[in-house]
Each structure stands twice: as structure tokens, then as C-alpha cells.
């Protein structure tokens, strides 16, 4: 049903820490591995061993270079999957009702058996979070691992998205961003989490934690300078210092 629910009971989503992501693509492949055998049809690959291999992925990691005003360039690895927007334009454009946002947790899903593969939802998504599977002709997108997070067949600790469970650097966090007291909400608060392309008005649930300032010219230079105060002027002086220092041990 492509009317968005007026309000969702929770806002489940991801918080991605751009300060910590090393760009290893672990989340990309883990996502592919879980979802190709999980919710819906497999994530197919075309020409997998050929000249132009391509396939369906629900999560991809970009790498950017950011030129700072001081002339230094900073590298940021940037994972991106569906942001489970509150005002999800991908849902409202869908002619079939295949795309919908869940009332209970805000997860945006595609009901594949209703999807005609028109592609319009992918056009409507600003973030490139939807991919039309070329073998099945249905729209695929991040499910927030809806078949994991409530799955009674999994141990409780494992009821998190596959990408979160696998991220070696711990750069991905999962939780209820609608609950201000959740760990993820607190993290977003503490680190100044941001929305992507806020001017699109999609109100993404997923948040990104910006990289911390890097290569800061230390104001502490004043604190640090005395640390390197020479103990002596020459080698002989140094031995003298050594003698005294050893006495004190």
C-alpha cells in the first residue's frame, strides 16, 4: 500500500560511522550473501565471469576524496543502502502497492509478488538505494534484514542486520531512531549525525556520523614543546644526565 503510514511505531534504521569505516566492503558482500538466499528472489548476477559483470547489490561502498580548505585531501569511505525514509518518495510513486512502509517499524519494503518492475520507485529514490533485479524483473532494496531482526530461529544477539553483524570495524549500528533513549539515537546526538541530501525532503531514518576533524594542527604545541626540552647540550652532558637519572630510579 503506497500511502505512507501516518506514523510508525518505531523507526528502525542504521547509523553509519564515516569516521570508522575503512571501506572494506564486508557489509556489501555479507548483505549480498544473506539476502540472495533470504527475503524474496535471489540477487542475480549477469555475465558473472565475463567482460561486463554486474549484479544486484543492496548496499554499496563508495570512496570519496574531500579537499579541505587547507589544501589537504581526506579520504572517506561511504557505505550506502536504503535509508528507510520517513517521507519515502519511492513508496508513493509505486503504482502497484508493491512498495510500502511498515507501520510497526518503518521499514520500507517491496512485496515482490506484486511488483511489475516499472522502475519508477528507483527513479524516485534520491540515494540510489533500489536496484531492479535483471533476472527476476522485480525491485530489490535493503530490507533492513527484516527476516533476521525478528527471527526466532536466530539467537537473540544475531537478530541484527547481516551487514551490522559483519562489520569488522564496528562502523554500523542498528536500532530505533524513533526512540530518543536508544543507543543509536544517543550516538547520533553525541556525534552530530546527519541526513543525506536533506533538501530532498525525504527525512531519512538512517543517519551518518561525520568524520572527526583530522590532521588538526595541535594547539597543544605549547604543551608539547617543553616535553622535548633537551636534557643536555652534547653527548657528555647526556651521560651526565643519564647518571643522575639512573640515580633517581
Amino acid at each position: 500500500m503506497t500511502l505512507l503510514p501516518e506514523k510508525t511505531d518505531a523507526k528502525l534504521g542504521l547509523v553509519i560511522d564515516l569516521d570508522t569505516c575503512v571501506g572494506c566492503h564486508a557489509c556489501v558482500v555479507s548483505c549480498k550473501g544473506w539476502n540472495t538466499q533470504g527475503y524474496g528472489v535471489p540477487l542475480s548476477d549477469q555475465d558473472p565471469y565475463g567482460g561486463d559483470p554486474s549484479g544486484t547489490f543492496l548496499n554499496r561502498v563508495h570512496a570519496y576524496e574531500v579537499m579541505r580548505p587547507d589544501g589537504q585531501a581526506q579520504t572517506t569511505h561511504f557505505p550506502k543502502s536504503c535509508l528507510h525514509c520517513e517521507d519515502a518518495p519511492c513508496v508513493t510513486v509505486c503504482p502497484t502497492g508493491a512498495s510500502y512502509k511498515r507501520q510497526e517499524d518503518g521499514i520500507v519494503l517491496v512485496n515482490e509478488s506484486a511488483c511489475i518492475g516499472c522502475g519508477l520507485c528507483a527513479w524516485a529514490c534520491p540515494y540510489g538505494a533500489r536496484e531492479l533485479d535483471q533476472a527476476a524483473g522485480v525491485m530489490k532494496k535493503c530490507t533492513l534484514c527484516v527476516d533476521r531482526i525478528y527471527n526466532d530461529n536466530l539467537p537473540e544477539v544475531d537478530r541484527v542486520p547481516s551487514c551490522v553483524r559483519t562489520c569488522p570495524a564496528g562502523a554500523r549500528h542498528f536500532g530505533d531512531l524513533g526512540d530518543p533513549d536508544s543507543d543509536v539515537s544517543k550516538l547520533v546526538e553525541a556525534r552530530g549525525g546527519i541526513d543525506l541530501m536533506p533538501e530532498q525532503g525525504t527525512k531519512p531514518v538512517n543517519k551518518y556520523l561525520p568524520p572527526r576533524p583530522k590532521d588538526q594542527p595541535l594547539e597543544e604545541i605549547d604543551i608539547l614543546a617543553p616535553l622535548l626540552e633537551p636534557v643536555a647540550e652534547d653527548a657528555r652532558g647526556f651521560i651526565g644526565w643519564l647518571d643522575k637519572a639512573l640515580e633517581k630510579l
Partner: peptide
């Protein structure tokens, strides 16, 4: 942080998008 440019595409292969 500054001016952004793409350093590396997520996949060297093509994609639907």
C-alpha cells in the same frame, strides 16, 4: 569538511543505477 570528489566507484563493474 570540504569539496568532495569521487575517488573510487563502489564497484568497478556496472550496475542498474
Amino acid at each position: 569538511v570540504g569539496k568532495v570528489r569521487l575517488l573510487e566507484s563502489p564497484h568497478s563493474g556496472g550496475n542498474y543505477l
